[in-house]
């Protein structure tokens, strides 16, 4: 959700009930501008808000150059004003933080203790030993953001193009999806480079444009029905809600280049989804 038209975007996703108080949105407008200057970013957007038990994390992301997909930097703030850079998410970090469950606390230095049973073989005697690992909430935050980006970040087809060098750039010619197209899941892509390309049949590939269709569409997401697609506000705004990450809302105004997503939620994945649909 671009920092420049934050108010407009928040109004578009207001159907989910979440938003920002006037004080917060005013503060964000100021601080995101300064963040862009200080970190020498080309573009900054508000990614969302993770609700903790004692405090909330505000998350922003930005890119420095033309590449929009891979070189994203994430920042967090507790008061909408002072931003801290988050370390990049590595696979180890994600795997480590995966074991932590429960709500976020709201304190980045809080340490979760995780006890695992580890089998130790010493000659004949094999016994299990308790290994305690400490996971900082900050790393859990990094992992959660990466997971949500991987599974629930959405862009409409055509909003980004891949140039011959392989850079993913904003498509300035994107004029929005037609209403008919906007009703189909195949018009929306996961905005993440980490997914494996699904094997498509030749028949499907024939219609694809390699400059536009370099991402995976939502069409074949598992489980089926893990997205809720609706037209809201009198049919003028298309809203996509992820049911896997409750709180993720994507909006797009058909026939305009306006699109974006925001996550405002607990930061917990809805693992009960198969029972709920």
């Amino acid at each position: 959700m671009e920092a420049e038209n934050l108010q407009l975007s928040l109004d578009a996703v207001s159907g989910s009930g979440h938003g920002l108080s006037p004080e917060q949105s005013a503060a964000l407008r100021t601080s995101l501008l300064l963040l862009r200057r200080d970190m020498q970013l080309a573009r900054v957007w508000l990614w969302g808000k993770i609700l903790g038990v004692r405090g909330d994390y505000y998350i922003a992301q930005g890119v420095a150059g033309g590449e929009q997909l891979r070189a994203r930097k994430a920042f967090y703030s507790l008061n909408c004003m002072d931003w801290c850079l988050l370390p990049p998410a590595t696979n180890d970090l994600i795997a480590q933080a995966h074991v932590v469950t429960g709500r976020f606390i709201g304190d980045p230095s809080h340490e979760y203790e995780h006890v695992t049973q580890k089998k130790v073989d010493e000659g004949d005697a094999a016994y299990s030993e308790e290994v305690t690992t400490n996971i900082k909430e900050e790393s859990r935050l990094v992992a959660t953001i990466a997971m949500i980006d991987k599974e629930a970040a959405v862009v409409p087809r055509g909003a980004f193009v891949k140039n011959p060098v392989g850079e993913v750039q904003i498509n300035h010619c994107f004029r929005g999806l037609a209403v008919n197209e906007a009703k189909k899941f195949s018009s929306y892509f996961h905005f993440t480079p980490t997914l494996n390309p699904t094997n498509k049949s030749l028949l499907e590939q024939a219609d694809l444009n390699p400059a536009l269709d370099f991402l995976n569409s939502l069409e074949h997401d598992v489980p089926k029905g893990s997205w809720s697609l609706q037209f809201e506000q009198g049919g003028s705004v298309l809203i996509l809600r992820s049911l896997l990450w409750l709180g993720m809302t994507f909006y797009h105004l058909p026939l305009t280049p306006q699109h974006g997503y925001i996550y405002i939620g607990n930061g917990e994945r809805n693992i009960d989804l198969p029972f709920m649909i």
């Binding site: 928040l10 109004d11 207001s14 159907g15 009930g17 938003g19 108080s21 006037p22 917060q24 506000q233």
Partner: peptide, 12 residues
Amino acid sequence: IQQAGLNLGRDE
């Protein structure tokens, strides 16, 4: 509720 960070939507 807007003060609390909720949003009903102005027109809504």
